[in-house]
Design a binder for these strands. Structure first.
Lengths: 178, 178
DNA sequence: TAGAGTCCTCTACAGATGTAGAGGAGGCGG
DNA sequence: CCGCCTCCTCTACATCTGTAGAGGACTCTA
């Protein structure tokens, strides 16, 4: 579908050049479409942003597979996947910052809803499940951010390798401890 | 000094509108200076970005005061301050994303150097200090990010309050556990 | 085969943006 | 007092950007 072609190109662009690189014409070029195509599907820039953010959400949601038998392992696997899908994840961070001045984006972008995190903390035997759920979410998001754009992006293990996975698993285990 | 006036205005702008809002003329307006001023001090946009990022680093570095007698408390206090200084911290995140396609910014932006984190983990009796130091850094950065732009920005306690501080302290204590 | 509707491409245009340089105001050394 | 230098303001211009609409190609229905 032509719309997906466009939103995918938009995601690439945002990852490579930042939000500033997201212009109708740049998307046309990136997608190899004639000039005006993006503008026809998303007349305003705001619409274009919403379009690519929705696409992002769909793509990322599909990649979450939690296994209650090996919770830390499956979370670590998910994080490692997001590190491998570097561009998608970078675009998501750009979108999260954008959501600061564009609140309707927010709802689309949150990975782990609060209730889910609370239930998880409860199942793990945490004292104050609501608060602990938030902390766990923060820790796990932190791992991703640290490895993608923080200090760990230059010094950490290469994403997609066994070493990377094991490192993440250790960290997630710690994050989940009551 | 005129240069600081300009970089401060740039920081505000980036926080409020994102990197896209950072233009020479917009900075002029924000700083209340005549058109062309920003362009005179920072001829290229790249120079302007480097200028405001350097200023950011100076300002933020001054706000870190660690107290070894109450480590978790002093870290929590620092994070809470950064949440209160919302604009500065938002601008820093925008700059970190920018550093992805502009690597010379990276060195200016990292809060806690790796060696420092390793030493900390060692002092706390962690098994693998280098790895644990990285995890601690990631967890703590995660708390900040989560509360500033993640799920915790809407549901968490109000920054600057005692409740916020206590919540962060609890979390930091967990993050520091061996 | 004719007509209607949809999808796509092209062109237009006002305004914003990056960058450059000319020149004035004011201070300072002689 | 004169010339010089620094700091600042203004103007210029090629390019890019957001947004709009005209019209062509293609498809489906009757």
């Amino acid at each position: 579908m032509r719309k997906d072609l466009i939103t995918d190109a938009a995601i690439e662009l945002v990852a490579e050049l930042g939000m500033r690189g997201l212009t109708h014409r740049a998307v046309d070029r990136k997608a190899g479409l004639p000039e005006g195509s993006t503008s026809a599907y998303f007349r305003t820039r705001k619409a274009l942003i919403e379009g690519f953010v929705e696409r992002l959400a769909v793509q990322e949601q599909q990649e979450i597979h939690l296994d209650t038998a090996d919770l830390a392992g499956s979370i670590a696997r998910t994080i490692d996947n997001w590190l491998v899908e570097r561009n998608r994840t970078l675009a998501r961070y750009a979108a999260m910052l954008e959501a600061t001045h564009h609140p309707e984006l927010k709802s689309i972008l949150v990975h782990s809803p609060r209730e889910q995190a609370t239930a998880l903390a409860q199942a793990l035997g945490h004292e104050n499940p609501e608060r602990s759920g938030a902390h766990i979410t923060a820790f796990i998001e932190g791992l991703l951010f640290y490895r993608l754009v923080g200090g760990g992006s230059t010094t950490g293990p290469v994403p997609g390798t066994e070493e990377s996975f094991q490192d993440l698993r250790k960290a997630v285990e710690k994050a989940l401890r009551p």
